[in-house]
Design a protein around this nucleic acid. Sequence first.
RNA 1: GGACGGGUGGGUGAGUGGCUAAAACCAGCAGACUGUAAAUCUGCCGCUCCUUGCGGGCUACGGAGGUUCGAAUCCUCCCCCGUCCA
Length: 308
Amino acid sequence: MNAPRRLVAILGPTASGKSALAISLAEKLNGEILCCDSTQVYRHFDIGTGKVPRTEQRGIRHHLVDSVEPAEVFTAGDYRRVALETLEEVSSRGKLPILTVGTGLYLRALLEGLDDLPARSEAIRERLRQRAAKNGPEYLHRILARRDPTGAACIAKRDTQKIIRAIEVSLLTGTPASQLLGRGRNPLAGFVVMKIGLMPARALLYARIDHRVEEMLESGWLDELRSLIRMGIAPSAKPFTFLGYAQLREHILCGAPLETIVREIQQATRRYAKRQITWFRREANVHWFEGFGHEEKIKVAAENLLTP
RNA sequence: GGACGGGUGGGUGAGUGGCUAAAACCAGCAGACUGUAAAUCUGCCGCUCCUUGCGGGCUACGGAGGUUCGAAUCCUCCCCCGUCCA
């Protein structure tokens, strides 16, 4: 049995300075960065997803960024597969893997594993959505209640997305999803995980989010989007639904006033940050720091925590 | 100076005698979430008390009075805002 290797995960809401802290730690601790973010894995969507530009990476390797094409659908299961390989590869070279975590579900998928459930089936989903459209918003929940009463009790009547997945799983496996959950999870083995959480004061975080949206626009976000549209990426491609991209597209294609759009994006981003915070609060064994990752004192404190 | 229109909870705004602590929406807060997760969904949202109940008390619809068993809603005066006339 090999000695357990180390893995660092930096979690925090958007704009809390995860990247800055990760780069600083990587420089000092011989690390490389693995992104754990559902949007940065997409190629060509750079500014709005908050990717660190090459010029600011300070020579630290960033993995898992830009690994799929915009037209592809990338899910938590896919992330787990790719991330496991990368983790193995990085750590086999003696480098400390540092995860920057914006997407809590992806971190959970990697650390705790996913049950062995079938992947999505577009055909089933399409059929269910059509029937739902005809029969009202709570129709699908009634279907689920018949097939899987236990599962249905845990999902809100109008949470169509989760209901569809539950029905999908029960159709594909012949067994209610609620009975399959919690059986085949295979947690990550062989790593000691250190979780560092960034939790700046709410008001400061919100102010920084607002400011960052402006900065993204100043650094050419709109031009990036225009060129993405010109590239001919299908309008239904997933990355076009990402925060900000969706709203800015309205501006470009329908002429919605930019000023209003900016406020909407800031608002939506603040709400997103709040959801991330809710998720991360439940995460076990996190060393929380009350500040931003780019603050010198936080960098020092985090480094001390990781250097025995 | 005169004529209208208007002032409602953090914001927009409905309500024109009791069913109204006051619709709806937004913001805010809290929560759930195993293959779309930057997604999707849920709850709370005047203050306060407890035996946490479709519970009690207090405060609230610009201000002060009044009518009424009962007023955000009707009347009087005052203050403020907008538009128009002088």
